[in-house]
Amino acid sequence: MSRFPRQFLAFSIISFLLFSCQTHKLIWEEEQPGPGISAPLQLEKGDRAMYKANLEVFRNNLSGVFVILNADSLYKVGFVSEMGVKFFDMKIDEDGYEVVYCMEAINRKPLLNSIARSLQYILEDPGKHDGSFYATKSNDTIYKLADNDGWKRKYFVESGRVKRIEAKKLIRNRVFLNAGYNNKNQPENIIFLQRGIRMRIEMNKL
């Protein structure tokens, strides 16, 4: 093959790859008041949810059971190993969290912050936020809203259920949540990814 057809072929392939796929730009529309979506994990007052969980952080691995209780004005969360050793107890509400007990080995503020924030995302009702924007893409409706503390969130909603949340504050500080429902009101499985501290929590409903 002479040099010219080879260059032409390469140029054609690169042009095809670069320009043939038209980017799908989302058109954001403002919605007032907050979005028509509810928290991924819905618990009635006094109800509990239990998840078998695996937590990986900085190459350490903890496994056990997460128990989440709706205690009226706040949520109580406990994480205990399969053999009964407790890792932590904490209270979570919309303003933040309070650690009631934490095993010394994992008592690190960045880790507890990340766990609490991740849990807030599945427990908090995003419908309370005013001034959200939404757009549609394929089967998803994507809602975006901003928190007062600088976090920006996108909710990917399919058939009225949140299946993915992306949250970012700085470029590197991202939280992802994926939820699978299996035709029930509460997610059957949830995956949290926190890039900042390389945390991954995988939870499967018990």
Partner: peptide, 15 residues
Amino acid sequence: HQEKYMDFLDVTLES
């Protein structure tokens, strides 16, 4: 048969 009672959550996990 294991029972783990968690006072903070008032729950017993059985396994």
